[in-house]
Design a protein around this nucleic acid. Structure first.
Lengths: 262, 262
DNA sequence: CTGTCCTAGTTGGCTGTACAACTCGATTCG
DNA sequence: CGAATCGAGTTGTACAGCCAACTAGGACAG
């Protein structure tokens, strides 16, 4: 049987479960300022009655909002709205194209290099590959309304790379295309630091060598935990900032000793 | 009645609930490599039997590990270990001192300026203060084994600032001291980007003005959602890197348009 | 008026149950 | 031998209930 997702336009949207619907609805209300910044949410029981679901389902929905940093919660009192900002989806985070469009800017890109080669030590470790395995390396410049802002170096395992190579060279978003091919991004581990532009960076971004760049290294895995890309993005100063929410109950942000810029 | 937490040595450790104990135990096993990288965890039912708790409690524990990026999970198959790295606690993230010690380095600091003043517009917005409210501003240099690595500008609301001002000027960790005074840090929103060192930064860090620095702006709130600090930290290149985990089910990381370095 | 006490309201933690959705290897069929 | 099918195993979603821990405000006593 054909996989369905390989049929072309298949989108792998997560099913709209009850708690997801409630979370989306409450999130929208909050971002519209229905409860105000610092205001209080209705009690769980009240929400359960309003939506006609059990309290457990409401709690599941609220835990999503909590993880996104929209609300606090503690024993004894109603939940409090922390912020009313729009919450970016995982897709907007992984895909430069989706991010750009969500800002109303026109994303662009140009492939500088694309080749297939044996994986080196770091690549084997990051992509969890066997000795002698091959990888697909891609070097791209990314533009915002024509202006270059980022250099992207992505390494795919051979299987994914084969899909990448089949796509048109002027494909806007490889991430979106890969998802359409059934490659699902489930988790990603990011490292953020500062580096100096090397000669390639400088030429592609139109800056001086040695110019400081904001670097994001990312390792993405599929639902089964298998690595599907290892990427290093370098942004021109002033083009991007990263925001993270962390809390005492579920922290995903950490500080590490830095690697000095080469 | 006296608050207890103001008695001095009171520590506000979260109670060790069942699911927290299980999560800690499983996390330790994972980081010790008991299941291997990419290996499979026992089934929920099996774990429930092993720990003598219900499946719901096991799922609660596993959701913690999942939020920390230690394991994946999907329907139909057992959980897979994503990484075996140590997970930093929220405390290590907020406190420079605790972070430094966890690396085996000796943290230090020197207060350059500490004053009380009317809050400006940005400060009122960030700390959610009324017009005319006052704030406590602190400027500090932070050192790692004697070497300056970071400049910290922190703004506290007046009530917190009063506690800060009472502490010895050579207090190593204000965060830890504040927690001992009953000020609990529950949530934090971070923004990471790149700036150029101004004259103060350059002098304090011993670098040239205009030198690139990695900037972390942070707004921390207490369990009630009330802001308790607004801080801007500037790190010398190569001294630090930030890591984040994000997933399709609960993303806390986002990319935003950047503010150009002044 | 001040400070203590009490209580209704609210969220956290834990258990138990039932079924749906999905994975993956074994089996069976062509 | 390859492919479709099946089924045991596993996680996801949802429901219901119970008690503990805690907050906040009102009642009350001094």
């Amino acid at each position: 049987m054909v996989d369905g997702a390989t049929q072309g336009g298949a989108k792998a949207a997560r099913p709209l479960t009850l708690y997801r619907k409630v979370a989306a609805d409450l999130g929208r209300e909050i971002s519209e300022g229905a409860y105000g910044s610092g205001g209080r949410l209705p009690a769980e029981g009240e929400l359960a009655e309003r939506y006609g679901v059990s309290r457990g389902t409401i709690r599941q929905a609220l835990s999503v909002l909590r993880a996104n940093g929209l609300v606090t919660s503690r024993r004894g009192t109603r939940r409090v709205v922390l912020r009313t900002a729009h919450v970016q989806s995982f897709g907007e985070l992984l895909s430069f194209t989706r991010w750009a469009r969500s800002m109303g800017e026109e994303p662009g890109g140009r492939i500088v290099r694309l080749d297939l080669d044996r994986a080196d030590g770091t690549e084997r470790e990051q992509l969890r590959l066997d000795d002698g395995a091959r990888v697909c390396r891609m070097l791209r410049v990314r533009t915002l309304s024509g202006r270059p802002v980022m250099v992207e170096r992505t390494v795919y395992p051979e299987a994914i790379g084969a899909l990448v190579a089949e796509l048109d060279a002027d494909t806007v978003s490889y991430t979106v295309r890969l998802e359409e091919q059934g490659v699902l991004f489930a988790d990603a581990q990011h490292t953020l630091d500062l580096v100096q532009a090397d000669k390639d960076d400088a030429e592609l971004l139109g800056c001086r060598p040695g110019e400081p760049l904001l670097r994001e290294r990312r390792r993405s895995t599929d639902p089964a935990g298998a690595p599907i890309e290892w990427s290093e993005d370098r942004y021109l100063p002033g083009t991007v900032a990263f925001t993270v929410h962390s809390s005492a109950t579920s922290g995903s942000l950490a500080r590490r000793p830095g690697t000095p810029p080469a």
